[in-house]
């Protein structure tokens, strides 16, 4: 495993480059197919509304996958991730239009650990609200 960021070069508070991800209905359909999660709340507006949702919502695991990219693009080696966890606190609502939903993910180093590892805390925002809680990754740096 060969992370391109050196442990010695980061401090608590070091910010990772933030990223913006756009999720449309097409994204959700593609993720449903690739993941095998065909729950209709992720593609069927009528069904989503019947179960009390405002509209179709993104798969939590898709948001989790996007948020991870802030870490894996930073380290350069996705295999450097040692731990990764999130809490799904709010749904990402995806309207049936060309714009879809925009999720903004930022991260910063929250702790330097042993063995060249650091803990990164991630923040994922959608429509002004955090959609992931306790979103943390531990990565091994060079």
């Amino acid at each position: 495993m060969t992370a391109k960021i050196a442990y010695a070069d980061v401090e608590v508070g070091t910010e990772l480059p933030a990223q913006v991800f756009r999720l449309t209905r097409a994204t959700l359909v593609e993720y449903a197919g690739a993941s095998g999660d065909f729950n209709p709340i992720h593609w069927n507006e009528k069904f989503a509304k019947e179960v009390g949702l405002p509209d179709v919502i993104a798969h939590g695991m898709l948001t989790m996958a996007e948020a991870a990219r802030v870490v894996t693009d930073w380290t350069g080696d996705p295999g450097a991730v040692v731990e990764y966890g999130v809490r799904f606190t709010k749904p990402v609502v995806v309207p049936n239009d060309d714009e879809g939903a925009t999720v903004e993910v930022s991260g910063k180093v929250a702790a330097k650990l042993d063995d060249n590892q650091v803990r990164v805390d991630l923040t994922a925002m959608f429509a002004g609200q955090k959609v992931l809680g306790m979103s943390r990754a531990v990565v091994r740096l060079a």
Binding site: E83, G85, V86
Partner: peptide, 9 residues
């Protein structure tokens, strides 16, 4: 509903 998800690799 899916509440939390965590992985240790």
């Amino acid at each position: 509903v899916h509440g939390d998800q965590k992985f240790a690799y």
